[in-house]
Amino acid sequence: MNAGDELPPLEIPITRTLIVAGAIASRDYQDVHHDAELARQKGSPDIFMNILTTNGLVGRYITDHFGPTAVLRRVAIRLGAPNYPGDTMVLTGRVEEVDGDTATVRVLGANGIGKHVTGMVTVTVPAGAAPGAPEEAA
């Protein structure tokens, strides 16, 4: 785990099911996340992903990479271009800073219309559990 390490990209198809399932799993019943007609009345072309789902996907991206012993300390995200159904979001990440067993990772989630999410994640990875070690590459 070194500053400058790039995380492999993760492609997430933005399906209507993902948007609705994410909204309901996060107990977010705002109509713009499940009712296309009401979303359009509010000036949006379709339903769009809620911020809690984006937050969850960013967290998953980091822990998928660093493994089940990794502990999230901080997740800070900013939303830009909405995730609409039919789009694909590609998450990429880069280790910006390493301090002992704690890394700060810059994350970008880009979709077909722009940057959906930009963020910084601080994660602690107990020694020996870092990914990319030879035994895991096999």
Binding site: V32, R73, I77
Partner: peptide
């Protein structure tokens, strides 16, 4: 009248 979430910063 409309609302959208733009930022979320969490510390655990």
């Amino acid at each position: 009248t409309s609302v959208v979430a733009t930022d979320c910063e969490q510390e655990y």
